[in-house]
Design a protein around this nucleic acid. Sequence first.
DNA 1: TTGACAGTTGTTATAATATAACATAGCATT
DNA 2: AATGCTATGTTATATTATAACAACTGTCAA
Lengths: 165, 165
Amino acid sequence: MQTSAFSPHDHSRCITSAIGHAKSLCADRGVKLTPVRQRVLELVWQSHQPIGAYELLASLAKEGFNSAPPTVYRALEFLSGQGLLHKLESINAYVGCCNPDTPHQGHFLLCQDCHQAQELDSQYINLALKVSADQHGFKIQRHTIEIVGTCEECLAQSTALEPTP
Amino acid sequence: MQTSAFSPHDHSRCITSAIGHAKSLCADRGVKLTPVRQRVLELVWQSHQPIGAYELLASLAKEGFNSAPPTVYRALEFLSGQGLLHKLESINAYVGCCNPDTPHQGHFLLCQDCHQAQELDSQYINLALKVSADQHGFKIQRHTIEIVGTCEECLAQSTALEPTP
DNA sequence: TTGACAGTTGTTATAATATAACATAGCATT
DNA sequence: AATGCTATGTTATATTATAACAACTGTCAA
Ligand SMILES: [Zn+2]
Ligand SMILES: [Zn+2]
Ligand SMILES: [Zn+2]
Ligand SMILES: [Zn+2]
């Protein structure tokens, strides 16, 4: 896995790695990565841009898969349940998980310029959440952490385009 | 303002404080807290449970207000723009802001038992987000931080009900 | 073999959330 | 009164997601 979704990299390796990982993981767990489930996962991994359910559905339809909404929502539910992808709540879109072995919700950087997402699992953030929750006697079950802004690459591009003073 | 939405408190004071605050704040800013906007804000503040747009709409309808979706979404957009409420993205619901003077996105504790929400603005969390973003050269514009779990009161209740060993 | 079961998929309909587009009304300034 | 701005009314539609039930598929044991 590359260090950042935002930096240029050989993304085909992301895809093959993710799919390979998913296959072995599902085999280990005794659950079925059926054709439609695998195809949805591949489509989600087509890029680091989170993708919406109905966009996935349109792709499936073009490829001759069944294309009623439950098809894709069931696949997304399965993949999410296996920790193979995450839903980004603030944009109703789905992105592949970089580290599906252990259950987690992750933290996401969303670039509003290139629309790519990078998953983190920062122990700083986890600790800060825990400390804040503890202060209120609150027991954390899960969380949604989505940070919107501009990634390093897009910042560099916009800086390069600025008029020189 | 009370220290916690979860603890028992005189909630009528939350409401009057929030509405009074909103009135003076809108007056200061030269924007209009019209009847429907004020009523939506009051409805949002009816409790510390985040409320959905269509539930607000149903209440408005009962009270003789116009009850087409744009009415409530416009009010929510105005109130959100003035920092008087927040949308909780993970549940598509809206909750009054405790501290509308300064712009912020806040951090939310959502109790899955009593369905109440407590807004925080933890500097620990803000710092952790900033550190993580900085490590990736990412410039934060806004964020969605929603922590789901069980509040202190509900934990105490469930503990009290547990069978003694 | 066959039938019972569990899991998966197909199909239809509908729920829930949100916005586009354009018309009308109120209100302040000139 | 005419103008322009903000807010509201109205109709229609877009977007996201789920309910409900039927049909198919493979497994395994009687
Ligand atoms: Zn990649
Ligand atoms: Zn992940
Ligand atoms: Zn209160
Ligand atoms: Zn707030």
